[in-house]
């Protein structure tokens, strides 16, 4: 099996598991969680990142800062599968005594920081990247952010900082699903062209289809291994609610939950 096929199969499994979690935890941001499955799958099953589930803060791990924490319940199945916590936890998300809630934080093994509030991840990641750079460490710092999160001014404070300090060990991945809570970003405050904005701030942008492993995975692998004298951003164009037609069409999908029977139909339809 080619690596793309392998990643596709893994992504399909992650999606099924995410939908199963949604059935017991209706409050999760399912649409946002569906847009970044291929990104997270590439990073972990595609062996882009170094990590050690038995020693979550080991020095030679790459740091992944998940800044759009609310939209990464799809990361739970991956973490459980890799051994960060027992798989049984996936069956009790949001229940009394569970370690997993609707929005993850650093109390969940595999999550580095607290990001229920948006606009913090990149700045904290800059501090981590600076510390690693000053110590001559080779580990990389990846950040997963939403595009709507770029409205937070603190993000641009960090964007300026990263470029000024030549943080070549820092990679920002934007899950560019183009929808905020209430509408399309182009209608709220248009930030396009995003790549040009990053270039103007002395970042190196690349734009890929965030659901296409053949574009996404090699690019992430290159960002992990190539040397850079400045920060890099991967603008991954994605679809919010990917794979669920009702969500894909809806500008309000961020706050929509699927009915249990809808989830059952979706699970049945992608059993293979």
């Amino acid at each position: 099996m080619g690596s793309t096929e392998f990643l596709k199969q893994k992504a399909a499994w992650v999606k099924r598991k995410t939908l199963e979690i949604h059935r017991i935890a209706p409050g999760i941001r399912i649409a946002s969680a569906l847009s970044c499955i291929e990104i997270l799958t590439s990073l972990y099953y595609g062996k882009v990142l170094s990590y050690d589930p038995s020693d979550r803060y080991c020095e030679n791990r790459d740091r992944l800062i998940i800044s759009k924490a609310h939209g990464t319940v799809s990361f739970y199945p991956i973490l459980a599968d890799l051994g960060f916590f027992p798989p049984e936890e996936l069956g009790r998300v949001g229940k009394a005594g569970a370690i997993l809630g609707d929005i993850p934080d650093c109390s969940v093994p595999g999550y580095e920081t607290v990001n229920g509030s948006l606009g913090h991840g990149l700045g904290v990641a800059c501090g981590i990247a600076l510390a690693l750079k000053k110590r001559g460490r080779k580990e990389k710092v990846f950040v997963l952010s939403g595009d709507g999160e770029l409205y937070e001014g603190s993000v641009w404070e960090a964007i300026m900082f990263a470029a000024h300090h030549h943080l070549g060990n820092l990679v920002l991945i934007i899950d560019n699903n183009k929808i905020c809570m209430l509408d399309y970003c182009t209608k709220i405050l248009n930030m396009e062209p995003l790549d040009v904005k990053f270039m103007a701030f002395n970042w190196k942008p690349t734009v890929v289809d965030g659901h296409d492993f053949e574009q996404l995975h090699p690019r992430l692998m290159a960002m992990k291994h190539e040397e850079s004298d400045g920060p890099r951003v991967l603008i991954a164009n994605t679809v919010k609610g990917k794979g669920v037609p009702r969500l894909e069409r809806d500008s309000l999908c961020h706050i929509k939950a699927l009915r249990p029977e809808e989830i059952d139909d979706l699970l049945l339809s992608q059993k293979d």
Binding site: L122, G123, V124, C126, G127, I128, L130, R135
Partner: peptide, 14 residues
């Protein structure tokens, strides 16, 4: 805001 975030990142690395 960035003062705090940068400081946090440095501190997380010890």
């Amino acid at each position: 805001q960035n003062l705090i975030n940068i400081s946090t990142g440095l501190a997380l690395e010890g």
